[in-house]
């Protein structure tokens, strides 16, 4: 198959970038999108040109590194990661626009490579259970029903790719944050820090410059892990409750 690529090129953070047209000839339909780019790069290097930089690692949809916007869609036309997008999903001769994930909170480092450190900082602000290494209780002493496990797991499978942010017209990180809050807050182990967790994660989300949710629902449609938009409902509920509880608690402190 043959394709014409219009690829975003940018030399360093902060530079003004440009689109470059690159031909991708004789590509196997069974090649993945990234394997197509590998071949393009191999040829560019042999010609003495500069290869296109992009992130990827596992190439099987689990690490969350790959992050291309293909024809305006984060990860491309199917609801899978970029690395699981295959050229058989495109038309022979098609012109394809290839850009990095677009969001102010994800600055471009070079070409198609962005900095998604803001997502790590949201986790740092409370996306964990505060326990350190050492003797722990016997797990079966704290049963978790398969239903709760399923709710937690359905959210915990988020790969942190940021496609939800890139897809959102407001650039919100609610699906990502909601997934982590749903995972931890639904488990018995996560109860002690339930309120603090959601409060600080939401504050961090705002501090990073992510937008707010106005229910477009694009995030969930772009999410390769099919994280349900319900996690945003959970996030909002948990947040409202946490803010109420905090107010009550501070009143009690004053009263004492």
């Amino acid at each position: 198959m043959n394709f014409t690529l219009q690829i975003w090129r940018q030399d360093r953070p902060g530079d003004s970038g440009r689109y470059e047209t690159i031909e991708a000839h004789e590509i196997d339909a069974e090649a993945s999108f990234l394997e197509m780019l590998d071949q393009v790069n191999e040829r560019l290097i042999a010609q003495g040109s500069r290869a296109v930089a992009f992130d990827s690692d596992c190439r099987e949809g689990i690490c969350g590194a790959c992050s291309l916007t293909i024809d305006g869609l984060p990860h491309g036309p199917q609801q899978v990661t970029t690395c699981q997008t295959y050229m058989r999903d495109f038309r022979d001769g098609q012109t394809i626009r290839v850009e990095p994930f677009r969001n102010n909170a994800f600055p471009v480092m070079r070409d198609l490579v962005t900095d998604r450190g803001a997502l790590d900082r949201i986790i740092q602000s409370g996306g964990y259970i505060s326990t350190s290494t050492g003797p722990q209780p016997e797990p079966n002493a704290m049963p978790v029903s398969p239903e709760v496990q399923t709710t937690a797991m359905d959210a915990a499978i988020c790969i942190g790719c940021g496609a939800c942010v890139a897809a959102c017209p407001n650039g919100a990180a609610m699906l990502f944050t909601g997934a982590k809050v749903t995972h931890l807050n639904s488990l018995p182990q996560g109860q002690a820090e339930r309120g603090d967790r959601v409060r600080s994660m939401v504050h961090q989300m705002d501090a990073e410059g992510f937008g707010g949710c106005t229910n477009f629902g694009e995030c969930s449609l772009a999410c390769p892990q099919e994280i349900s938009i319900d996690v945003i409902g959970t996030l909002n509920r948990e947040y409202r409750k946490a803010v109420r509880d905090e107010k009550k608690a501070s009143k009690k402190m004053v009263a004492q």
Partner: peptide, 22 residues
């Protein structure tokens, strides 16, 4: 055995049986 205990304490959602056991 300690590893599984540690992971559960961190909130790793291992598969469970109907009674809630690992």
């Amino acid at each position: 055995a300690n590893i599984v205990d540690q992971a559960v304490a961190q909130g790793v959602p291992f598969n469970r049986e109907y009674g809630g056991q690992l």
